[in-house]
C-alpha cells in the first residue's frame, strides 16, 4: 500500500464519511450538493492513487443503473409534467429525469465513499480503531467478521456445489434448474455454518472477547490525529446544517 493522506486518515473518519455524505445527498434538495460530494470522493480517490479502479467500478455500475433509472423515471414517473422529448410510444418527462438523476447521484455517493473506505483501510486497522473507540466492539466484530467470512463462504459454496453435482444434481443450465438446485445447495451451507458458528463462538469466548472492565488493546497501531477529529466534527456539523437548511426550504415552500 502506498502512503498518502487519504490512507493515513483514521478508519473511523472514512467510515463516517459514508453515512454523512449519503444522507446529506438524500436530504438536500436537487442534486447539486450530491454532485459536489461525489467530486470530493473522486478527488480523494485520485489522491489515494486508486482513481483508475475507482472510475472503472463506478462507471461499470453507474451506466446500466443510469439507463434504467432514466428510462423508468423519465418515461413513467407520475410526477412528469414538463416534457423534453416525444418518443412516439411515450414522452420523456423532465421531473422524472431529475428524480432519476438524484437517485443515481445518491447511489454513486454511497458506493463511491464505501469503495474509498474499503480500499484505503485494511480490516485489522478498523478492528483496532473500533476497539479504541467507545463503539460497541460487538457491533465492530459483526461488521468485520462478516467482511472476512465472505471469501471463505464463497470457497465453501464452491465445494458444496461440486459435492452436489457429484450426487447427480445439475447446477448449471436454465434459471428454473438453477432455482431448483438452490435448495440442496443452501442446506449444507446453513448446516455447516451453524456448526461453525457454535465453535467460533466458543473460540471467541475462550479468547476473551466477552471480557468486561478491561480496556482492550490492539496489535495494530492506528493514529487518530487532531485533524481526524476535526474532520469528523466538521462532517457531523455539515450534516446538521444541510438537514436544517433543507427542512427550512421545505417549510418555507
Amino acid at each position: 500500500m502506498t502512503d498518502n493522506w487519504v490512507r493515513r486518515l483514521n478508519p473511523k473518519t472514512k467510515l463516517l464519511m459514508i453515512p454523512v455524505f449519503g444522507i446529506a445527498t438524500i436530504v438536500s434538495p436537487g442534486m447539486l450538493l450530491g454532485l459536489f460530494l461525489l467530486l470530493v470522493v473522486i478527488v480523494m480517490a485520485w489522491q489515494a492513487n486508486i482513481i483508475k479502479k475507482f472510475l472503472q467500478t463506478m462507471i461499470s455500475f453507474g451506466i446500466p443503473i443510469a439507463v434504467m433509472l432514466f428510462i423508468i423515471q423519465g418515461l413513467y414517473s407520475p410526477q412528469n409534467h414538463t416534457y423534453v422529448a416525444n418518443l412516439g410510444f411515450a414522452k420523456l418527462g423532465l421531473e422524472g429525469l431529475m428524480y432519476g438523476g438524484k437517485l443515481l447521484v445518491t447511489l454513486l455517493v454511497f458506493m463511491g465513499s464505501f469503495y474509498l473506505f474499503n480500499k484505503t483501510i485494511y480490516s485489522g486497522e478498523l478492528a483496532a480503531a473500533l476497539i479504541k473507540s467507545s463503539l460497541s466492539d460487538k457491533g465492530g466484530y459483526l461488521i468485520l467478521a462478516s467482511l472476512n467470512v465472505v471469501p471463505q463462504m464463497k470457497r465453501q459454496l464452491q465445494v458444496i456445489k461440486e459435492a452436489q453435482e457429484a450426487r447427480g444434481v445439475q447446477t448449471g443450465g436454465s434459471l428454473l434448474t438453477r432455482i431448483k438446485v438452490f435448495i440442496p445447495l443452501m442446506g449444507p451451507v446453513i448446516l455447516s455454518s451453524l456448526i461453525d458458528t457454535q465453535e467460533r463462538g466458543m473460540a471467541l469466548e475462550l479468547r476473551g472477547f466477552d471480557l468486561k472492565n478491561v480496556s482492550k488493546t490492539s496489535y495494530i497501531q492506528v493514529v487518530d490525529t487532531k485533524l481526524d477529529k476535526l474532520f469528523r466534527i466538521g462532517m457531523l456539523l455539515f450534516l446538521i446544517i444541510v438537514t436544517a437548511f433543507s427542512i427550512y426550504l421545505k417549510v418555507r415552500r
Binding site: E162, A163, E165, A166, G168
Partner: peptide, 23 residues
C-alpha cells in the same frame, strides 16, 4: 458429460460430509 450425468457411474464421497448431505 457433466459431473451430474456421471454421478450414476462415478460415485464421489467428499472429505467433509457436511458439504454433501442436505436432506
Amino acid at each position: 458429460k457433466t459431473t451430474a450425468e456421471w454421478a450414476s457411474k462415478v460415485g464421489y464421497v467428499f472429505q467433509n460430509p457436511n458439504d454433501q448431505l442436505f436432506l
